[in-house]
């Protein structure tokens, strides 16, 4: 109910919506840890060229498959070792955070904005339009998401941009359904009727009266999609249908390293670990967001 209380007239002793949010969010210790890890990830992505010791595509031919520093044969010049082409793993991982962050942001923004608009329309439109939209969404949901994304990329041609488009399309129906469900619940309430009686037009009702009260579940879903988008983009990269080599995208790095798994554990372990830690941090944060924003699940 954080949003509702923000709209209500404020009394002096009531904590602000943000403070109330932080109170519930910080109760979940995992969520706070997740937030810190995510902040580090964003920092890495933002300042990648400054943080990375080398250019991620620079090949040191004399240092091919050098192990990490703590293993015999490693050196501080390449703290996490080098890959089969003699490129610095650390630099590639740091640059890779940019691609994953970018994928997460673009997919979530496209999927949420598209899904919310279609969901709002569906909730306010006449019955037959609503039915039509929901059937189309059912059709998209009938395909396993990774498979549909894979086929879409096969149509569009393999690249990171196309992978992002495909993943955003596949995620769309979740937001449409979520928004529509909240809209249908909110529309019955008295404050919407009173706004309508007061003469609010349809678009005002949709975007200004109803939408802010539907946001809580959408924000939670957006946080969770951010991590799923990173996972799916990495999976597509791993299958050779996402970012193309020599892009230091984490999934693509894993695909390139596959044949060396039994000879050089570090070329396989680190990119996957980077994906896992990032996704885990975002999921932890998502759990905290849900506790803080979703009144039904609050303190359950």
């Amino acid at each position: 109910m954080a949003e509702l209380s923000a709209n209500a007239p404020k009394t002096e002793n009531r904590p602000s919506a943000l403070r109330e949010f932080w109170f519930y969010f910080s109760e979940n210790r995992g969520a706070v840890i997740g937030l810190w890890v995510f902040a580090a990830f964003v920092f890495c992505a933002a300042f990648a060229p400054l943080l990375a010791p080398y250019d991620p595509t620079e090949q040191f031919r004399t240092h091919i498959l050098q192990p990490p520093v703590w293993q015999e044969g490693g050196s501080w010049a390449f703290p996490l070792g080098t890959d089969p082409l003699g490129r610095d793993m650390l630099s590639r991982l740091i640059m890779g955070s940019r691609y994953s962050f970018f994928v997460g942001i673009v997919v979530v923004v496209v999927a949420v904005s598209g899904g919310v608009i279609v969901g709002l329309l569906s909730g306010f439109a006449p019955k037959w339009v609503d039915t039509l939209i929901m059937r189309v969404m059912d059709i998209i949901l009938a395909f396993p998401s990774l498979l549909l994304a894979l086929v879409l990329v096969a149509i569009l041609g393999p690249s990171l941009t196309n992978a992002m488009i495909a993943i955003a399309i596949v995620f769309q129906p979740h937001y449409v359904r979520l928004t529509r469900a909240s809209v249908l619940a909110e529309r019955q309430k008295d404050y919407v009727t009173s706004a309508r009686v007061a003469g609010a037009g349809r678009s005002r009702l949709m975007f200004i009266t109803v939408l802010p009260n539907c946001l809580a579940p959408i924000i939670v879903q957006a946080a969770l999609s951010f991590s799923t988008a990173i996972l799916d983009a990495a999976a597509l990269g791993f299958l050779g249908m996402g970012a193309q080599p020599p892009t230091p995208e984490w999934g693509t790095m894993l695909a390139e390293a596959r044949e060396f798994i039994l000879r050089a554990w570090w070329v396989v372990t680190f990119p996957g670990l980077a994906i896992l830690v990032t996704v885990l941090a975002i999921n932890l944060m998502g759990d905290g967001l849900r506790d803080a924003l979703d009144p039904k699940l609050k303190r359950s």
Binding site: L231, L254, G272, L276
Partner: peptide, 9 residues
């Protein structure tokens, strides 16, 4: 949160 392709490797 596991990327299962990495888990497999």
């Amino acid at each position: 949160s596991m990327p299962i392709f990495w888990w497999a490797l």
